[in-house]
Simulated scan of single mutants.
Amino acid sequence: MKITAAVARATAAPLSLESLEIEAPRDGEILVRVVATGICHTDIAMRDQTYPVPQPIVLGHEGAGVVEAIGRGVGKVAPGDHVVMSYNSCGSCDSCHEHRPNYCHDFFQHNFAGVRHDGSTALRRGGEVIHANFFGQSSFATHALCHERNVVKVRNDVPLELLGPLACGIQTGAGAVINSFALRPGETIAVFGVGSVGLSAVMAARVAGATTIVAIDTNAQRLALAQTLGATHVVDAKTQDAIAAIMAATGTGTTYALETTAIPRVIRTAIESLAPRGTCGILGASTLDTEITLNAMHLMTAGRSLRGIIEGDSTPDVFVPRLIELFRQGRFPFDKLVTFYPFDRINDAIHDAETGKVVKPIVRM
């Protein structure tokens, strides 16, 4: 069938809206009519070849829509179901068997290769191959093919156009707090960088009962938003010493620090803001050769920890519906992060995300 998709054809260049052909779903695949898609900084990084995905390619990995058709063997969803599309995984490695698909041993092949596992792609423009299957979906399009493993059925009494970002950026920040850290009431956290991921972590920390939530950024508007969403303290890193401010707020440092920027000096600051036995999680998309310099004695002698976090240690089939229920109860107001754009303004949405004008853009198809 014919679809319209935003195609990345050159590094750092605007996406082009094009008419493409998409295949019917194969065994285990699901054709989704995309209602809306969130824009994540990972999409921008892949457009700019921070990680060399093949081009031309249709990006997009926070899609929400309605199932139109299913391939043989699909039992999780049926035509007409409302779904969000999350990251893909192999289903057969040790991590997947142990219900940790976010650490799938073949994560990069299933999410960044731009082709199915057999090397094929579902998109064409006449005789030209267009790479697809980005995060198992390529949802910068009016229709997307996803897989049974990375589709999440959601209730149909919440606005579907809002839900796509739950499948990546928002579950990454919230999941880091709730799943990775398992933050308990009375504990403390510092969040470095309060874009959509960091603000999701702030909201989750409030839900989990943190008594001190410190938000650190250089964007005054985002710091003000962080306060409305649950931050007890904010630090403008342009004018304040973040470590001194955190120590003043906590006395000994925080139980947890979450670093979302992937900037090495900020990662070091996050670690140095920890209390004894504290844990720092890093989840920003860095370049492949990014290195971190740490003070080994500071880390070792007080039992501090540093760990990487992918997708908030979330199993999307479980965690996304939980976030939706928290939203319905008014306890996780992620809609306050969102700005909507029509699909034909996708490049404006990307620009506004890059420049910090908006927190979480969503394009409506």
Rank of each mutant, 00 (worst) to 15 (best):
E148F: 09
R72Y: 04
A296R: 11
S89Y: 15
I170M: 09
Q240I: 11
T260G: 11
V202N: 01
R100I: 01
L123C: 07
G75L: 04
M85I: 15
I246L: 03
C90D: 07
D217Q: 07
S19V: 13
I309P: 02
Q171S: 07
P333D: 01
A182C: 14
G114D: 08
V77A: 10
S286A: 14
H233F: 06
E311L: 15
G173H: 11
I189F: 00
R265N: 12
L326R: 01
H110L: 11
Q221P: 00
T339A: 04
D317H: 03
I170D: 02
T252L: 06
G127Q: 14
V74L: 02
D157M: 04
S120R: 14
L288E: 12
A36G: 12
A174V: 00
T255M: 07
G186Y: 00
T260C: 15
G195P: 05
I362Q: 13
F181E: 01
E325L: 05
S286N: 06
G195A: 06
A167F: 09
F112K: 13
M247T: 15
T232K: 06
A257Q: 06
G251S: 06
C90L: 02
A285F: 10
P56H: 15
L31N: 06
P321Q: 01
S89G: 12
L20D: 06
T239Y: 05
